[in-house]
């Protein structure tokens, strides 16, 4: 049941990305090109998502537990550090070069074009490389984090 539900939620997400235009790299890049062929559509995607997710989260997180699990898995509250700044900025550069982000590229796979696949293979390699590096950093720091 959790697996079927996740499949359906994935379908809702993929439909939203496609309808919103985030699966199209040209549209994403034009969102960032304020000095050129600006297309503000993606601001509406984010606004629409936050308008639903904001109140939705407030309502849901008041409950004791989710339907298929014993607790809500929320990220631990951590400080704002250089890793967050650097990582997010690096991601932005990657996003701005080709117009693909993880959440846009996965649904774009369904359009059966090669570009999203190439992006996702390289992105997976990047994630695995980063994990190696983070593992080594964690080893060096020991139990401080």
């Amino acid at each position: 049941m959790p697996v079927i539900a996740a499949l359906l939620i994935g379908m809702v997400f993929g439909s939203g990305i496609l309808l919103g235009g985030m699966a199209n790299p040209a549209k994403v890049l034009n969102f960032f090109d304020i000095a050129g062929t600006w297309d503000p559509s993606l601001a509406f995607v984010i606004l629409g998502a936050l308008a639903v997710a904001g109140p939705g989260y407030r309502f849901i997180l008041r409950r004791r537990r989710p339907v298929f699990d014993t607790e809500f898995h929320l990220p631990p509250r951590r400080g704002i550090d250089l890793r967050l700044f650097g990582g997010a900025s690096l991601f932005g550069i990657g996003w701005g070069i080709a117009g693909f982000c993880p959440g846009g590229a996965i649904p774009a796979l369904g359009l059966l074009r090669p570009e999203p696949l190439v992006f996702l293979i390289a992105m997976s390699a990047g994630i695995l490389i980063a994990h190696r590096i983070q593992g080594r950093i964690a080893d060096k720091i020991g139990s401080r984090e």
Partner: peptide
């Protein structure tokens, strides 16, 4: 861009 995005995220 995929490599950068993967490391960055």
């Amino acid at each position: 861009s995929g490599l950068l995005a993967g490391i960055g995220v």
